[in-house]
Amino acid sequence: MELSHELQRRLRGLVDSAPSDASSVFCVRRTAGGYKGLLKIRSKELRIVAGGSAATLEQVVDQIDGEVAERLTEWRRLRFS
């Protein structure tokens, strides 16, 4: 099982917008209905756990993307205030 370059680029992009020294791990597994994925980002400043389950990997990444983006927006609001 491999992720497309586009999906890898999106996941890498999420970490790029996280705080400094952030690292992340993304795991995915096949389920009866499609895929279930989990992304964890951690840095000194915050920890984010986001997950999703959908019929396609793209939809799983979409769900995770939305959840992480929301958390990072909140972090940036505090970071730059």
Binding site: M1, Q8, D21, S24, V25, C27
Partner: peptide, 25 residues
Amino acid sequence: LVFVGDESEWSAPAWCDYSASYGKP
């Protein structure tokens, strides 16, 4: 999905079919 060892090291759970890790400077 837990840390094993020091903080820079990640351990993927047994349930996953695919895992990847990313970092940033």
